[in-house]
């Protein structure tokens, strides 16, 4: 059996890659992909520990996370479409009418 630390290490690497992707990339679609990567790194921890402890809570959690992620992306794509309609561009740097 693969020890649970290995899963934890892999998930940490995935999480960091995802977080860097969110900060560095400027294309909203790629940013969403990076967010998915972060969510999946959490899912990996849940599943790995659910297996290690032999309790199902973690696996149940993963189902909910996947549902929520799908809902979030659906909203995100809808917003991207409505921005694209008016600007014909979705680069995060050109969406800057509001100065933060």
């Amino acid at each position: 059996m693969i020890p649970v630390e290995y899963y934890l290490g892999l998930s940490a690497i995935m999480f960091v890659i995802g977080a860097l992707g969110v900060m560095v990339r400027r294309n909203p679609l790629v940013i969403f992909m990076s967010v998915e990567l972060m969510l999946n790194s959490a899912n990996l921890v849940f599943v790995a520990f659910a297996h290690a402890y032999q309790v199902l809570d973690g696996q149940v959690f993963v189902f909910f996370v996947m549902t929520v992620a799908a809902a979030e992306v659906a909203i995100g794509l809808a917003l991207i479409v409505s921005i694209f309609r008016s600007k014909h561009n979705i680069n995060a740097d050109t969406v800057n009418e509001l100065k933060g």
């Binding site: 649970v4 934890l8 998930s11 999480f15 995802g18 977080a19 969110v22 909203p28 940013i31 969403f32 967010v35 972060m38 969510l39 790194s41 959490a42 899912n43 921890v45 849940f46 790995a48 520990f49 809570d57 973690g58 959690f61 996370v65 979030e72 909203i75 995100g76 917003l79 991207i80 921005i83 995060a92 969406v95 509001l98 933060g100």
Partner: peptide, 25 residues
């Protein structure tokens, strides 16, 4: 506004979820 709120929200909630997963772990 909706787009920015979504991007920040999705990212911070992913970080929070990772925290939850560690708490569970």
């Amino acid at each position: 506004a909706g787009f920015k709120y979504l991007l920040f929200g999705a990212m911070t909630s992913a970080v929070m979820l990772y925290g939850f997963s560690l708490l569970y772990g």
